[in-house]
Simulated scan of single mutants.
Amino acid sequence: MKAFNHSEKQFFQLLEQHKGIVIKVANAYSNTENDRDDLIQEVSYNLWKSWPNYNPKYKLSTWVYTIALNVSISFYRKHSKRVQMYRAIEEVELELIEAEELDRTEEVHKLLYRFIGRLRPLDRALMLLYLDEQTYDDMAAALGISKTNVATKISRIKKVLKQQFEREERGL
């Protein structure tokens, strides 16, 4: 088997190609612009540290997701008290926004991400991968769980999210 050359140039190309994954994950695990920027930097640093160990027989996007999610979950745990405070402030701000100012699609989108933000870190990561239309195999590989577990969790999470939307519509 030919050795894979893990050059600096290849790394920066990888980062440019997959920056959407890093940003999406960082947005899901941070509530302020500063935290998001810090998290993006932390994920990028960890990708750089892990780059020499990347095995090209694995899908690059799965590798990026795995590192981004692991770093983000760790970040989330370290900052959970701050995150809870910011989430409470964000919810109050969202309630203050008048409904007619928001386009219905935008409102539903914001609600969905707010509800996803309330999920446990693993479930949140799973929904981000699901919304990014990753395959069950890729989700399982990125999160270190079985494909069957992925399917079961997604089904349960969808039910929870549906219930939250129903409660929101009833004004509870």
Score class of each variant (00 low, 15 high):
residue 124 R to I: 06
residue 108 V to E: 14
residue 43 V to G: 02
residue 74 S to H: 11
residue 15 L to H: 04
residue 152 T to W: 07
residue 74 S to D: 12
residue 46 N to T: 04
residue 145 I to W: 01
residue 141 A to R: 11
residue 163 Q to E: 15
residue 59 K to D: 01
residue 62 T to D: 09
residue 127 M to G: 01
residue 21 I to H: 06
residue 70 N to D: 07
residue 168 E to D: 14
residue 110 K to L: 09
residue 28 A to T: 03
residue 149 N to F: 10
residue 157 I to H: 06
residue 99 A to S: 15
residue 148 T to M: 13
residue 149 N to W: 09
residue 4 F to M: 04
residue 39 L to R: 05
residue 166 E to T: 07
residue 102 L to T: 05
residue 125 A to M: 08
residue 45 Y to S: 08
residue 54 Y to L: 04
residue 25 V to F: 04
residue 147 K to Q: 09
residue 108 V to M: 11
residue 137 D to F: 08
residue 142 A to F: 03
residue 88 A to P: 00
residue 111 L to S: 15
residue 18 H to G: 06
residue 136 Y to T: 12
residue 143 L to K: 03
residue 154 I to Y: 09
residue 101 E to T: 12
residue 102 L to E: 13
residue 140 A to M: 06
residue 156 R to T: 03
residue 117 G to D: 08
residue 119 L to H: 08
residue 152 T to E: 10
residue 102 L to M: 15
residue 114 R to S: 15
residue 58 Y to G: 10
residue 2 K to Y: 04
residue 82 R to F: 10
residue 11 F to R: 01
residue 15 L to N: 07
residue 16 E to Y: 07
residue 154 I to F: 11
residue 2 K to I: 09
residue 11 F to I: 01
residue 142 A to D: 04
residue 44 S to T: 15
residue 102 L to H: 02
residue 167 R to L: 11
residue 78 K to N: 10
residue 153 K to V: 06
residue 76 Y to P: 07
residue 18 H to S: 02
residue 125 A to H: 05
residue 167 R to P: 02
residue 98 E to I: 09
residue 100 E to N: 14
residue 49 K to A: 08
residue 38 D to P: 04
residue 47 L to F: 00
residue 73 I to Y: 00
residue 44 S to P: 03
residue 128 L to A: 07
residue 134 Q to F: 01
residue 166 E to P: 00
residue 28 A to Y: 08
residue 131 L to I: 11
residue 18 H to P: 04
residue 122 L to N: 05
residue 151 A to C: 10
residue 104 R to P: 15
residue 148 T to G: 12
residue 55 N to W: 01
residue 142 A to Y: 03
residue 41 Q to H: 07
residue 162 K to P: 01
residue 118 R to W: 09
residue 96 L to D: 14
residue 101 E to F: 09
residue 84 Q to R: 15
residue 112 L to I: 10
residue 142 A to M: 07
residue 87 R to T: 14
residue 63 W to Y: 12
residue 12 F to M: 08
residue 68 A to S: 14
residue 152 T to N: 11
residue 2 K to M: 09
residue 121 P to I: 05
residue 66 T to K: 02
residue 34 N to L: 11
residue 86 Y to N: 12
residue 68 A to Y: 00
residue 101 E to W: 09
residue 95 E to Y: 14
residue 2 K to R: 13
residue 8 E to M: 00
residue 2 K to P: 06
residue 16 E to N: 12
residue 97 I to Q: 13
residue 27 N to G: 04
residue 6 H to A: 13
residue 61 S to N: 12
residue 31 N to G: 12
residue 93 E to C: 13
residue 170 R to M: 14
residue 37 D to E: 13
residue 3 A to K: 13
residue 84 Q to I: 02
residue 89 I to R: 13
residue 12 F to T: 11
residue 98 E to F: 10
residue 73 I to S: 04
residue 93 E to R: 11
residue 38 D to C: 01
residue 8 E to N: 12
residue 88 A to M: 11
residue 39 L to P: 09
residue 133 E to K: 11
residue 159 K to T: 14
residue 39 L to N: 09
residue 157 I to Y: 07
residue 53 N to T: 10
residue 114 R to N: 15
residue 38 D to V: 07
residue 130 Y to V: 03
residue 119 L to S: 10
residue 15 L to G: 06
residue 80 S to E: 15
residue 170 R to Y: 12
residue 50 S to A: 06
residue 123 D to T: 00
residue 94 L to E: 15
residue 2 K to N: 09
residue 54 Y to N: 01
residue 113 Y to H: 08
residue 87 R to L: 08
residue 24 K to N: 14
residue 54 Y to M: 08
residue 3 A to W: 08
residue 143 L to F: 01
residue 10 Q to C: 02
residue 153 K to G: 06
residue 134 Q to N: 04
residue 116 I to K: 06
